[in-house]
Computed example of a mutant assay.
Amino acid sequence: MTKPVRYKRHRFPPEIIAHAVWLHFRFPLSLRLVEEMLLERGIVVSYESVRRWAMKFGPSYARRLKRKTPSPRDIWHLDEVVITIAGQQHWLWRAVDQDGYVLDEIVQTRRDTKAAKRLLKRLLKKQGRPPKRLITDKPGSYAAARRQIMPAVEHSSHKGLNNWAETSHLPLRKRERAMQGFRTPGGLQRFVSVFSAVRNLFVPPRSRRSALATHLHRLNAMAAWKSAASIAA
Score class of each variant (00 low, 15 high):
residue 49 S to K: 08
residue 230 S to I: 07
residue 39 L to R: 15
residue 180 Q to E: 11
residue 162 N to Y: 04
residue 81 V to Y: 05
residue 137 D to K: 13
residue 169 H to Y: 11
residue 136 T to L: 01
residue 159 K to Y: 07
residue 111 R to A: 11
residue 83 I to M: 05
residue 6 R to L: 07
residue 218 R to E: 15
residue 47 Y to T: 01
residue 114 K to Q: 08
residue 132 K to N: 10
residue 168 S to N: 07
residue 176 E to W: 14
residue 125 K to F: 14
residue 4 P to I: 11
residue 225 W to T: 04
residue 35 E to Q: 15
residue 59 P to Q: 05
residue 103 L to R: 04
residue 167 T to P: 02
residue 38 L to K: 10
residue 220 N to Q: 11
residue 202 F to M: 11
residue 7 Y to P: 00
residue 162 N to H: 04
residue 150 M to E: 00
residue 84 T to L: 10
residue 72 P to D: 13
residue 131 P to R: 10
residue 37 M to T: 02
residue 165 A to F: 02
residue 145 A to S: 02
residue 197 A to Y: 00
residue 94 R to I: 11
residue 127 Q to Y: 03
residue 147 R to D: 05
residue 100 G to C: 05
residue 165 A to W: 02
residue 19 H to W: 14
residue 183 R to N: 14
residue 53 W to M: 03
residue 177 R to S: 04
residue 113 T to G: 06
residue 190 R to Y: 01
residue 217 H to N: 09
residue 169 H to K: 07
residue 179 M to N: 09
residue 27 F to W: 09
residue 165 A to I: 03
residue 32 R to A: 14
residue 93 W to T: 01
residue 18 A to P: 07
residue 95 A to N: 04
residue 214 T to E: 07
residue 78 L to R: 00
residue 140 G to L: 09
residue 35 E to M: 07
residue 10 H to K: 11
residue 208 R to C: 10
residue 182 F to G: 08
residue 142 Y to K: 05
residue 108 Q to K: 04
residue 231 I to S: 03
residue 165 A to V: 04
residue 36 E to C: 03
residue 146 R to M: 11
residue 118 R to G: 12
residue 104 D to F: 04
residue 26 R to Q: 14
residue 92 L to M: 08
residue 151 P to D: 06
residue 122 R to K: 12
residue 56 K to H: 14
residue 135 I to P: 00
